[in-house]
Each structure stands twice: as structure tokens, then as C-alpha cells.
Simulated scan of single mutants.
Amino acid sequence: MLFAQDKNEKDIKYYQIQHINSGNIFLKKGNDFNALLSFHSVLGYNFDKNPMTEYEIYARKKIDSLFPIYQKKEKEKWKGKWKLQQLQNFEYNYEYIEFKDSLVLFYKIEDAFKPCRIENLKFANYNDLDTLNFYNSLEFKNNEIWEFTFEVINGEKRLKVYLLRDENKVYRTLLDERGLFRDEQKRKKALEEEILTYYVFDQNQ
């Protein structure tokens, strides 16, 4: 996808069909997430924003139908209160973040019971040119877009948090290539030493 501008129309058509076929196979297997990634890849070739091809129109319809399903699953994973565990490369230091059905509440360390900031739980609009963050980001009323990534590490529920776009609508990128190690053991060790800000699920809530 990153070099799609160098491919000719025949190549692009071939790869788009391959991604569509993969997406439909994943759908049959009930793997909504990988299906979403495959259909998203179809749209990654349209860098100059030309009118969408029949394949891109097809993929976009699939994405629009999958988005609510997958994001509903993400919301369920996020639900509850999360305590700050590691603060890196992030200017906010909220001690707790709490997810409810339609709200995101932020708490300072001084008062873990009274939120200092309340936002609507609103997913950011889909961006077909965003190859990295397109399904798990929330947009707040001050224009900020925050990315939330749920994972389980050694049985511990974690929520990685990253400010993807600031209030001036300036996008940010954190380059951390630890996941690119070919050696499985080296990659595992590197990822365990992650530098991203993350929260852990608060068992005492």
C-alpha cells in the first residue's frame, strides 16, 4: 500500500481483488477484524482521490457495515475504569479514564471520584488514507482524536492511549518499530519494553 503510486492500473486492480477475496474469506470465518483490515487495504491505493472504482465502492460498503459491529466490540472491551500505569510520549496525565455506554470520563489524581473532563464516546470518522489508525479512535469536542488499543499482556488487561490529533487538528505519529523484529524472541522482549502510555484495568472499581 505504501508504494501504490508506483503500481500501474492492472497491478492495482489485481491487488484490490486479492484484498476483497481475503476480506470475504475472513467474513465467512467470522473474523470481522481481519475482514475490516482487508477491505480497508482496497481503498489504500486511491492516493490521488480519483473517482472510486467498482472494487473500492464494494470495499467501502463492506467497511461501513463492519465498522459498527467491530467498534461495538471495542467499546465492550474498554468499559470500566482504567488506572494510569505508564506515562510516555503523552502530555496528559489523567490518573483514571472511565468508559461508560456513551461517555468517557477523565479523573485527576487529586480526586478519583469526580471527573475533571467528560467527553462523548464518539468514534472518529473513517479515513481511507489512514493506514495505521482507522477503527479504534475517538474524536472529542475540542477536535482531539485519541487512539485506544486494548490488549492483554501476561493476563493483565491494558489500554494503550495515544493522542493522534491535537486540538489544532495537527496529526502526530510515534515511530516505534519494535514489532518489526524478525526473531520472535527478540520481538517479544522488545514489545514487553514498550514505550507507549498505557492504563491497566482497575480491579478495585
Rank of each mutant, 00 (worst) to 15 (best):
D64H: 03
Y198F: 15
V170Q: 13
G179Y: 01
F26D: 08
K73Q: 13
F67P: 08
F39Y: 03
E177M: 09
W146D: 13
F150M: 12
E167K: 03
I20L: 04
F99R: 06
E91G: 07
K62R: 09
Q88K: 15
R60Q: 09
I118F: 02
V104C: 14
Y107W: 09
C116T: 08
I57L: 07
E177Q: 05
T197E: 02
K157L: 00
F99A: 08
L87E: 05
M1A: 06
K77C: 09
H19A: 02
Q86D: 13
F148H: 10
F90S: 01
S22D: 10
E98C: 13
K141G: 08
A124N: 10
D6V: 08
R60L: 15
R187K: 02
M52Y: 05
Y135G: 14
Y198V: 06
I12W: 01
D101G: 06
Y70K: 06
K122N: 15
F201E: 00
D166G: 10
I25A: 12
N24K: 07
S22I: 07
E76L: 09
C116S: 11
L121F: 15
I145C: 08
I153M: 14
N136A: 08
I17C: 09
D183C: 00
N24R: 04
D183L: 01
N93G: 15
G23F: 02
E95M: 10
K169Y: 07
L36E: 02
L129S: 14
Y162H: 10
N204K: 01
G155D: 12
N8F: 05
I145Q: 07
Y199K: 06
F134C: 07
K189V: 04
N34S: 06
L175D: 13
A59I: 11
Q16N: 05
F67C: 06
L43Y: 01
L175M: 15
N31G: 03
N143F: 14
G155Y: 05
K122Y: 11
K29L: 11
K61F: 02
E95Y: 14
Y92G: 05
Y126W: 14
F134N: 13
S22K: 05
S137T: 10
F67A: 08
H40M: 05
F150R: 14
E76M: 10
H19V: 01
D183N: 03
K188S: 06
